[in-house]
């Protein structure tokens, strides 16, 4: 009887202790999510008191709205372009930093620096660097004779997406380095020593030992970066504002434009929910892969 009471008390204490976290989650996550879901079913214009119910009209509108498909396409290009480059560069740099060489500590600090600089500061600096007249990028390329006329890094629809991808990769490849370096340092050295004794080349060691160890975390990191990159807003908005002529408008930028330039909150909410749906699919894949990795380990 005494044990039962104690267990009930413990549960009550646990519930009480969880209450603040639950309340915070409710206020910061559940309520806004519910509001967005509700708005997506209403015609909500900025500042209008009446929000007539319109059912799935906003979603139908999105389906027939050409800029939505353009934004979805841009988002996929942005995610694929950024993440693939981040992974390739991240792994290469991690492999380099895993070796012993003089000044390795300094090299690591330099590599991680972009990740630590606030995005707003970094992007504004890049914006000036990519300016067609004032920017140092064109200046050096012209000086080196690599280009004959200044490149329109931010103002050409054909180049602008490449520019934002360059900045995104610069900012976030250190995260990949961090994740991969952690795995590299945990690989038992005796496996390499045994491979060397057996006459394995450097390439064979990488292919047979390093890569199998890296693969689970590599996939998880790539997926995690895809999720984060998918809803990245600040880099693109600060660099190009989604332009020129919509060439860098991704889904988060389109949601922002609909809500705060066009003042169409209901439609913006529908676009946000569609974005959230795609992200949820990616998250489910992430959790599935995480479990696979755990099981394998």
């Amino acid at each position: 009887m005494r044990n039962l009471t104690s267990e009930t008390e413990n549960r009550a204490i646990a519930a009480l202790a969880l209450l603040p976290s639950f309340a915070i989650l409710l206020v910061l996550v559940a309520l806004p999510t519910f509001s967005v879901a509700l708005y997506s079913l209403q015609d909500v214009q900025m500042g209008e008191a009446a929000h007539p119910f319109v059912g799935f009209e906003n979603f139908l509108w999105a389906w027939n709205y050409a800029p939505f498909w353009n934004a979805l396409n841009n988002t996929l290009v942005w995610v694929f372009g950024s993440v693939s480059l981040e992974m390739v560069i991240g792994v290469a740099v991690a492999l380099m930093l895993n070796r012993n060489f003089v000044g390795r500590g300094i090299a690591r600090a330099v590599v991680f620096a972009p990740y630590l600089i606030p995005t707003v500061v970094a992007v504004l600096v890049w914006r000036y660097m990519f300016h067609d007249v004032l920017g140092v990028v064109n200046y050096f390329l012209l000086k080196a004779g690599l280009i004959e006329t200044p490149v329109n890094w931010l103002s050409s629809p054909r180049v602008a997406m490449t520019t934002v991808i360059i900045v995104g990769v610069w900012k976030f490849f250190p995260f990949v380095v961090l994740a991969i370096l952690g795995v590299l340092q945990a690989i038992p050295q005796d496996q390499y020593e045994a491979a060397k004794i057996d006459g394995a080349s450097e390439w064979q060691q990488f292919w047979r030992i390093t890569l199998p160890h890296l693969m689970p975390i590599f996939l998880l990191t790539a997926l995690l970066r895809s999720i984060w990159t998918f809803h990245k807003f600040d880099i693109i908005y600060l660099l190009t504002g989604g332009g020129p002529v919509g060439s860098t408008t991704t889904l988060p930028v389109l949601v922002y434009q609909k809500a705060f330039a066009d003042f169409e909150i209901g439609r913006a909410a529908a676009l946000a929910l569609i974005t959230a749906f795609v992200l949820t699919l990616l998250l489910l894949l992430y959790f599935y892969l995480s479990k696979q990795v755990e099981a394998r380990q």
Binding site: H131, D132, V133, L134, L154, S155, T240
Partner: peptide, 21 residues
Amino acid sequence: SPKGIAAYSYGDMINVYLTGK
């Protein structure tokens, strides 16, 4: 005009002029 005007706003109208170009 400079080739990158498709990204220009208020600030660029001043900054570019003040480069002397």
